[in-house]
Amino acid sequence: MKYYIVEKHYIGPNPRDGEHIDFNRFEVTTKPPRNKEKRICVNGWLGTVEEVDRYAHGVYDSLAAAEWAVKEVLLDGEFRRDPDDDLPLDVLAVYRPGRYEPITDDALIQWLEYRIEVSADDDDEELERQADMMIYELEQEGRGAYRLQMRDALEFLRDSARDD
């Protein structure tokens, strides 16, 4: 049996909405990937379907070799493996880049509302300090946010406090 790695990357609008925030992944599969012309392709771009770019990253003789290759493809070395339940029959493993599960913008604002008091008087320096602290707390719960995303959410809460 042969094992293949297929990378799926969402390229459409609203990449940080609930449906797409954690979409990007690497799948280890037993089904050979095919390009847009329906030909087997084990290395390179497979095409874009419904705003999802697909790339093939090789063919391997064992599951262990394929999983090791996924770790090599993920340049920053941080990844997480999805639970084995709910996978399609030909997909043996799914790896997602990053150590923490991303959070949507709306969910981040809601999460912050219950954890921090943002004042209308908070200046940019205070928001930076709060951003560092809240990123750390969010990561303790297994979730992650980009610094800019956290800063935008805090600014939104500050602007809301100013409007009240």
Rank of each mutant, 00 (worst) to 15 (best):
H57M: 03
L154Y: 01
V70R: 01
D53K: 15
N35Y: 06
T29Q: 01
D152Q: 15
D124E: 12
E78S: 11
A64V: 01
A93G: 02
T30A: 02
R99C: 01
E137N: 12
E155F: 14
R151D: 05
E27H: 01
R39Y: 11
D85V: 12
R96E: 03
E117T: 10
H9C: 08
F26S: 07
D122F: 05
G47M: 06
W68T: 15
K31S: 10
I109Q: 13
P32R: 03
D121W: 04
V42A: 06
W45V: 04
V6H: 02
P13S: 05
W45P: 13
A153G: 05
E117P: 00
V94I: 14
E50F: 12
L138Y: 11
K2I: 01
G142V: 04
R25D: 02
F156I: 07
E51I: 01
W68G: 14
Y10P: 05
T104L: 10
D82T: 07
L63G: 00
A161Q: 03
K2H: 11
D132N: 12
R143F: 11
T104S: 14
L92N: 00
D22Y: 07
R81V: 07
L92A: 02
V49M: 12
L74N: 10
H20N: 12
H57P: 01
M1E: 04
A93L: 03
L46Q: 08
D61C: 12
V91A: 00
D106V: 08
A120L: 06
F156V: 13
L46W: 11
M1P: 09
N43A: 12
D86F: 04
T48V: 11
F26N: 09
W45F: 13
R96K: 14
D163Y: 04
R54M: 07
R34P: 02
F79Q: 05
D163T: 07
V73D: 02
G58T: 03
R96H: 11
D76V: 02
V73Q: 15
F156S: 11
T30F: 00
R147I: 11
D61L: 14
G47N: 03
F26R: 12
D132E: 09
A120R: 15
L63P: 00
L46D: 08
L75E: 13
Y136P: 00
L46R: 06
D152G: 06
V118A: 01
E125K: 15
I11K: 14
G18C: 09
P13H: 08
D86V: 05
E101M: 10
G44M: 12
Q149S: 05
G142K: 09
N24M: 00
K8Y: 04
R115W: 04
H9W: 10
Y146A: 15
Y114R: 12
E113N: 12
L92P: 00
L148V: 08
E67P: 09
K8M: 10
L89Y: 08
E125S: 10
M150T: 09
D123S: 05
E113F: 02
A69N: 04
C41T: 15
E78H: 10
D123A: 05
Y60P: 11
R147L: 07
E51F: 15
M133A: 08
V118G: 00
A56R: 08
R25L: 05
D22H: 13
T48Q: 13
E117Q: 06
L112T: 06
T104W: 09
L157E: 01
Y60E: 07
A161S: 06
